[in-house]
Simulated scan of single mutants.
Amino acid sequence: MPRPRVDVVVLSMNDRPDEETAAQATLLAQSDVDVRVVVVGNGCRPEVVPPGALTVCLPENIGIPGGRNAGVDALRDAGDPADWLYFLDNDAAFPRTDVLARLVAEAERHPDAAWVQPRLTGPDDATTPRRWVPRLRASNPGRPGRVTSMTEGVVLVRRDAFDAVGGWNSRIFLYHEGADLAWRLYAAGWNGWYAASIRMHHPLTTPARHALYHRLAARNRIWIAHRNLPAPLLPLYLGVWTVITLARAARGGGLGETLRGTREGWTTRHTQRRSPMSWRTVYRLTAAGRPPII
């Protein structure tokens, strides 16, 4: 039986060379899979590139979803694209040499899953912040199962499903692009699977370390809701998330930028082309544990 082939997309801004070198070393050590890598320089020429990898040099930073799409396009244009895509943050690491092979095996055991999500932990192989667990009931991150969201920087995706729904939404730039892609994959009849026994490592960082976090997170929640949800669910979803977002900002900082992002989202929401999911998709999301109002 031929070994599975995986096309891996890594983004770089040349801002963490030591972490990138370590991440790529663990990627190249993956066994029982054939890996092809593209390193996308988002507004730069990537400086840390493994031997034989493709490179894409974007003249400006077009955001994480756009950069990942550029990597997928480059792999397709190179010919003979693999059946599997893996999106890898440049500071994430494979703790074992069999991670990719095990993820592909999980995907083959769950043919209705468009993506398979490993459990993301800190470098200690144990600590998993709640925000890294791709479901609402996050108190037990070791429990596998069907999920409706994804952790974008460490995820295996079927290429045919990814291509069929148009890939990442490049307009989002940063934050919540995984929720948008997951909803569109569900709308196309797929679901997601959380392979909690398979781990990936990542530094224990917080998204709020980025200056754009509060504004873009608030704006993008409105954008993805306008793009994907049936009209009756829009006020419910946005009402819940507005309360949650404002409460978090008031407690943890960034209230002004959150209000700015909320205003920007409302005034520009029509730039996102609406393609509301069916009520059957709403039911499937609800049955999988996350109704699209929270």
Results as ranks from 00 to 15, higher is better:
A107P: 03
V6E: 10
N69D: 11
V10R: 00
S139D: 13
A247W: 10
T205I: 11
W241G: 00
N191T: 15
N191R: 15
G41R: 06
T127Y: 00
P17I: 15
N14D: 12
R68Y: 01
A249W: 04
G178P: 05
P65E: 08
N61Q: 05
D91E: 11
R274F: 15
D163E: 11
V240H: 01
V40I: 02
L229E: 08
I244N: 04
E264S: 15
R76L: 10
A225K: 12
D77G: 10
L54V: 02
P81Y: 10
Q272E: 11
P95W: 00
V35P: 00
N140L: 13
N140P: 00
V38H: 03
L185D: 14
L285E: 02
D80F: 06
I172Q: 00
W193Y: 15
A225C: 15
I222S: 06
V9D: 07
S12M: 08
L285G: 04
V116L: 08
T206M: 12
M277H: 07
P50V: 15
R119P: 09
D34T: 15
A208P: 01
L216V: 12
L58Y: 01
G63N: 08
F162T: 04
R158H: 09
N220K: 07
A70V: 07
G43Y: 02
R219K: 11
A93W: 06
Y237L: 03
G252E: 05
V165H: 13
P235R: 10
E60K: 02
D160F: 08
A93S: 15
E257L: 10
R68T: 04
F173W: 05
L27C: 04
A188D: 09
D112T: 11
A126S: 14
G252P: 02
P123D: 14
L27P: 01
R219L: 12
R119E: 14
V155G: 02
Y175K: 06
R5N: 10
G265E: 07
W132A: 05
Y283V: 13
V154Y: 00
D15S: 12
V243Q: 04
D83K: 07
S149Y: 07
T26S: 15
A164R: 11
G66C: 11
N228H: 02
A126G: 06
I294M: 11
A107L: 03
P95V: 04
P59M: 06
P51V: 03
P276I: 09
I222D: 06
G41S: 05
W266D: 06
G289Y: 01
A196D: 00
V33D: 01
N191Q: 14
V154E: 11
N220M: 08
I294P: 01
L204A: 10
R215V: 10
L27A: 03
W190Q: 11
T271C: 12
R158V: 04
D163F: 09
L236D: 02
P129K: 14
G145E: 07
R248G: 13
E19L: 05
P232H: 09
S31F: 12
R263H: 07
A126F: 13
G189D: 01
A287H: 10
A287Q: 06
R227D: 14
A231L: 13
V40H: 03
A25M: 09
C44E: 02
I224P: 00
V49S: 04
